[in-house]
Amino acid sequence: MTAALSSMQWRAREQAHHDRADALTAAHRARAARREKHPVQDFLYTYYSYKPAQLRRWHPGAGVVLEDAPERVTWRWYSPGPSVDSAAPDAAAFAAGKPELAGLVERMLRRTASRPGQFGCFGLHEWAMVYREPEHRHPVPLRLGQAGTDAVVETHELRCTHFDAFRFFTPDAVPRNRSPLTREGQPVFEQPGCLHAGMDVYKWAMKLGPLVPGELLLDCFELARDIRELDMQAAPYDLSGWGVVPVPIETVDGKAEYVRRQRGFAQRGNALRERILEAWLGTAA
């Protein structure tokens, strides 16, 4: 056990977390009530399948004892604390109950943070997903048209390092990638410059459940939200109808802006990886 929070302390933090999470998800929840979809902002709720209610649930992080918390004694991955009705998230119980997941999350966080960022992909993974393909995953027109989009792919080298982007490449785009990617090889290729690896920090934090402090989880969500914006600004789609201003990576200036923001996200992502490992295992990346 690393710390203890009185009932007044942890319930105040829980309420602050609820307020912050509600503000972050308000627009999505309003759209859902109207049965409307947003091609950029809804991604974090559909691709990752984590609902606003899950994001709203506050936890203190591994080993932090909550006093006067009888309702949490029976929660998953919590253990009774040293005093009556106290409880704390239990990293050892999680590791014993989910050894493969615990090992994977630790490997992905540590290995990704340990590598130098690569900043020459220019977000072309989204272009590779529509390359020479008349039917697209997203029902949104292409900003440069099909021929113009294909030409951008053909005049650049595809350098994708993220399998969960690569697996959506069109058949003609797959052999154009610098390296073939597989699920098994994901821990080998993942690197902090990748936008999708940065978004996945949110996924890893969510998978650890109560072992990650709620405030840190929301920081990871905010990073994923900000990255998603650039990801779609640099994509080949015409999203002007949703107010998205493109970052034209087919130009010199567009590439420069993309890389500048990409570097900032890499720094934020690595800082969050270190914070997750510290909160969960007491060690930095």
Rank of each mutant, 00 (worst) to 15 (best):
V212W: 03
F169I: 02
G209I: 07
E157L: 13
G209V: 06
R159W: 03
W242N: 00
K203A: 06
G145Y: 13
C194G: 07
A235H: 00
F189Q: 04
L208N: 06
H162R: 01
M206N: 11
L195E: 10
C160Y: 03
P246R: 13
R178W: 10
Y237Q: 05
N177Y: 00
A235L: 05
V201P: 01
Q186K: 08
E229V: 15
L217F: 04
D172A: 14
L223D: 00
L223F: 01
R225S: 15
L208Y: 04
L223I: 08
G209T: 04
L217R: 15
P213F: 01
S240G: 15
E135R: 15
V244E: 10
A234Q: 04
V152D: 13
L239D: 02
P210M: 06
Y202L: 15
W204P: 00
Q233E: 10
P236T: 03
A147C: 12
L216E: 01
V212Q: 02
D172L: 13
R176C: 04
G241A: 12
P171A: 12
V245M: 14
R176L: 15
V247S: 13
R143Y: 02
Q233H: 10
R183S: 14
G241H: 06
T161R: 07
I249V: 15
S240L: 06
P246V: 07
P139A: 12
D226C: 08
D231G: 13
R137V: 14
A151I: 10
P171D: 00
P210Y: 01
S240E: 13
P139L: 05
E184Q: 14
F166N: 11
V188W: 15
F168A: 05
R159S: 03
C160R: 00
P236M: 05
G209M: 10
N177W: 01
L181Q: 09
L181R: 01
D219F: 01
E184Y: 04
E157W: 02
D164L: 07
R159L: 04
F168K: 04
L181T: 02
E229A: 14
V212R: 06
C194T: 09
D200A: 07
L142V: 12
A205M: 14
